[in-house]
Design a binder for these strands. Structure first.
Lengths: 180, 180
DNA sequence: ACACTATCGTTCGGTCCCGAACGACTTCCG
DNA sequence: CGGAAGTCGTTCGGGACCGAACGATAGTGT
């Protein structure tokens, strides 16, 4: 059973966590320690991994699509053709990674690359009809599972969760790109 | 600029998001759609990626440690030697992945494997003195950055964020292992 | 004792992912 | 014009990561 994240026996959550807090602060005693920040960060990461694995297993693997491949395809489905750097940013991956994902997507006939009309360096990415159809087929199931994993959250909680995470993202975004 | 996650111009957040909601619901019109669930799930994943990348770039890369390698080392530092399956669970990775991470950690002299006294299948993993020293050196900086990325959250918000994520984790945990 | 079953950690195939280096192309400026 | 500097997408090296298959060890029942 995890010592930072609760396991199946939720009645022990608080006790386990206080013990974990004691353990950690004891290990680094004599130093100021922001345990709430540790907990927030570590839970974000654990939740993301768990959700991603769940989705890939339950929803995506029958279609042989990875999380990233699906996200890219989803973006193309909803917002249509676009340049690859924008697509990469939208999907939250680097350009190098997008190349690989796009190669896979193209090989399977879900998307296609095209040359930019005036700028020879750029690439325009479009979804194919097959790609759009696939997203339309997967998305209802995907969204259903999104609802499932957040089932124990009230509607207010979900909005609140999204809001808090958005705050973190904005913090990372604005001090990540720093001064121009 | 992302259409689901806000970019630098935070004053447009709400407008952008409502536009995104319209876009998405329009793309899948005629079907019930839980946009709050989509937002929550997608933000969890984005925040995790952003935080992980930030940490690996700013804190871990000087030590040539990946996120997972550091988490494993951290667990070993705080809770000491333990069997590998427990360590894997604690670090949130699978056994197969732990083998790779452990090989790296062992090669660099941060941890070591030992045979279980009675059970020949099991392996006991311990941190080395060098491994402990490394964690002690990194952790203050790491925690400082954890505080930084959650800087725009109030102490209450941080606890709330951790709590909401814990709920999601528990949901995934309990219906993931199902009935015995 | 001895098959049968369960449970370890490891290996393997495949994908993802990043950052850095690279080549192709464009833009800027003399 | 034509080189210099900048900006694209791609390639590459290396690690992470999963799930499935595997070999070794332990327990179980007869």
């Amino acid at each position: 059973m995890s010592r930072i994240v609760p396991g199946a026996f939720s009645s022990d959550d608080d006790a386990q966590m206080r013990q974990a807090e004691r353990d950690v602060t004891h290990a680094f005693e004599g130093q100021a320690f922001d345990f709430a920040a540790l907990l927030a960060v570590s839970n974000v990461f654990r939740a993301a991994t768990a959700v991603r694995n769940h989705m890939e297993r339950e929803v995506l693997s029958p279609h042989q699509l990875s999380w990233s491949a699906f996200v890219v395809l989803f973006v193309l489905r909803v917002w249509g053709k676009q340049e690859s750097h924008q697509l990469a940013r939208e999907a939250g991956i680097t350009g190098g990674t997008l190349t690989g994902v796009l190669t896979t997507l193209e090989r399977r006939g879900f998307a296609k690359r095209a040359a930019h009309p005036t700028d020879g360096r750029r690439v325009i990415v479009s979804p194919t009809a097959k790609g759009r159809r696939t997203v339309d087929q997967i998305m209802p199931v995907f969204n259903h599972h999104e609802a499932l994993v957040t089932a124990d959250l009230s509607p207010t909680d979900r909005r609140e969760l999204a809001r808090l995470l958005r705050t973190v993202l904005r913090t990372l975004d604005t001090d990540g790109q720093d001064v121009d």
